[in-house]
Design a protein around this nucleic acid. Sequence first.
DNA 1: CTGAAAGCGCTTACAG
DNA 2: CTGAAAGCGCTTACAG
Lengths: 347, 347
Amino acid sequence: MSTTPLPSKSTRATGRVTLSDVARAAGVSPSTVSRALRGERAVDPALIERVTAVSSMLGYVPDPAARALASQRSDHVAILIPLLSNALFVDLLEAAQTTLRAAGYQTLMGVTHYDASEEEQLLREQLLHRPAGLLVTGLDHNQATRKLMAHSQVPCVHLMDLPIDESEADIYCVGFRQTEAGAVMTRYLLDKGYRRVAFAAAQLDPRVMQRLYGWRKALQEAGRYDPTLEWLNPAPSSLALGGVIFEQIMQQSPAVDAIFFCNDDLAQGALMAALRLGISVPSQVAIVGFNDLTGSDQMLPTLTTVRTPRAQIGQAAARMLLSLMRGEALETPQLDLGFEIVERQSS
Amino acid sequence: MSTTPLPSKSTRATGRVTLSDVARAAGVSPSTVSRALRGERAVDPALIERVTAVSSMLGYVPDPAARALASQRSDHVAILIPLLSNALFVDLLEAAQTTLRAAGYQTLMGVTHYDASEEEQLLREQLLHRPAGLLVTGLDHNQATRKLMAHSQVPCVHLMDLPIDESEADIYCVGFRQTEAGAVMTRYLLDKGYRRVAFAAAQLDPRVMQRLYGWRKALQEAGRYDPTLEWLNPAPSSLALGGVIFEQIMQQSPAVDAIFFCNDDLAQGALMAALRLGISVPSQVAIVGFNDLTGSDQMLPTLTTVRTPRAQIGQAAARMLLSLMRGEALETPQLDLGFEIVERQSS
DNA sequence: CTGAAAGCGCTTACAG
DNA sequence: CTGAAAGCGCTTACAG
C-alpha cells in the first residue's frame, strides 16, 4: 500500500488510475473492488474499508464510459423540456440538475420546442446514451415517444402535470392540478366582484388548455361563461404578444372587467400596454397572470398571479427519480405540490 | 445481405445492432466497418458504399459508451456558464447546443454561479466523461481550472470575451469588446448632451468590470469623470435591485442626469421604479441598459441599450469548436462579433 | 486498402 | 463472501 502502482506498459495506457490499480494496491481482485466501491452488499466490511482507503489514496475515479459499457447503464439522466425561453422551465431544469448532480448524475438536456416529433427525435438520441433515468415535461407525447419510453425500461418521472383519469395511475409524476389552478384564480376574481372575466392565452400547450378548462368551469358554475371571453393565440408567449392581445381585448370587448392571462409574460406585457394606453389597472380592468415569474412583483401595478412551485417540482421529481433508479418502491407515485394565489395590486 | 443477422447467443446480449452485425452482413471485417462509417480516408469507395447501405438497412447506431471507451473521446461537449437566471447565458447555451447537436454532439452543461471553485469542480466532473470539446464563459479562471483545461488536451473555445493583451493570443474565443461597448454607450450619452452620467452595476463579474472601465475611460476623456458616479453592488443582478439602486442614486445624487446600468434587468427595474416614484425618463434622468433582453422594448419608456450578439456567439463558438475537434487549423482564432447601440425612448 | 488481435476499464454471471 | 473469466461494443496500432 505504500508503493505507488507501476504505470501500465501498454501502448495505449491512458495514465488514469484504474480499478485494477486499486485492486493490486489493496491486494484483492478487481471484482471485489468493483463491488466494494459500489456499496454492493455481500462484501466483508473490513475489505470495504481497505478498498475505500486505497481507492481515495490513489485518487481513483471510475470511468463512466467503461461503466456504462459494462453495465448498460450510464450516469446520465435525460431531461426533456419544451423551451429555454420560458423561465419556468429553466427553473425546473436548474433544480433538477442540482439535485441530480449531487447524486453523481450528469444531466442530458433536450429542448422540444413543443414539437412532438422533435421530442421523439431527442429522446431517441438520449436513449443511445442509455440514461439511468428520464425526466419529461407533461403527460402528452406521441405514440412513438411513449413506445420508446416503455421499451427502454428506463425509470421515468413526468414534470408539471398530474394525470386526470385513473388509466394513468401507473405513471410517476410531480406537479400540480393545472385545471384547478385555473378555476381557483377565476373564482378569486369572481369573488372580488369582477363580472366579465376574460381568459387570454398563447402557445396553447396542454397545460395552458387545462387552465382554460378550469376558467371555463368556474365561469359556467357562476353562470358567467361566454365564449367571446376566450382569447386564444397559438403564437409563442411573450411580453410583446401580451400587449397586442390586451389592446385587442380592450378594443373589441370594452365590457371586460378582468383578464386572466395564462402566463406572467403576457400579463406583464399587458400591464405595460395599459400604462402606454392610459388604461388604469385594476380600476378599469383587472389583470392577473400565472407562474409568478421574475418582474411580476416589480410591475406598476404589481401583478396578481398564481405562484407555481417549479423549483420544488424539479427537485422532488429528481428525488423521486433517484429512488426509482435505486429500485425502491414509492409510497407516493404522484406528487401534488399545489399552487398559491399571490394577490397584488393589479386585481 | 438479405438475411437478418442472428441474435448473439451471449447471456448478456443487448439486442442492439452492433458493428459486428454490420460487418457480417456486409462481408467485411469490423475494422473496415469502423473506418468506413467514420469516413476515415483509405477505404475503398465501393466498400464505403456497401457498408453504409448495410448499416442503415440494419438500423445500426454506434454505441457512444463503447466508442468513448475505445477512443478515449466521447461525443460530449462540456459547456460552462455562470448562471441560468440570466437570459443572456440561456441564449448562449441554446445556440451552442443546437449547433453542436446538429453535428452529433451531446451537451454537458455546468452552471458555475460565478464561483471559481465550483467551476473547477464542475470541470473536473465533466472531464471524467472525456468530452470532445469545451466551451467556457470568459477568460478568467483559477489556476487549477486552467491547469485542468491545459492537461486535458481537450479543444476549448471561450465565450463572450476577447483577450486584452497579446499574452493570450493563443486562446480561442468568440465575443466582443466589453470595454469598448461600455465606452461607446457612454460617449453616446455624452454626445446626447448628458453631463453627469452614472454607472450602476451589480454582480461585478469580469465583463461588468470591463464595461465599467470603458465608461470610466470615456468620462475621463471628456473630463467628466467623478468617482461618486460609480454605483457598484456585488449582489446578483435583478429587476428589484435595479429599482433599489435607482432610488439610492436619485436620493443621494440628484444631479445625475443619466444612468448607465450594466445589464437590462437592472435598467428595467429602474424604469419601473421611476414610474412608481413619478420621476420622468428621460427628461429628468436618462436610463440605459446593456444586452437588449426580453421586455426592454416593451418598457415605458422603451429602453435604450446595447444589443449583444449572444446567440451568434454561441453558434460561432460551437462552429469554431467543431473545427478544432476535427483538427482543422483556424484562420481566425479570436472572433469579434461586435455590438450595437439600440436607441429607444429612455435616453 | 484490409483484417486479426489487442485493448479501452469496467460489471457480472458463475463457481467455489 | 471472493475471484477468474468473459463480455460490453467499439478503435487502433500492427502486419500484410
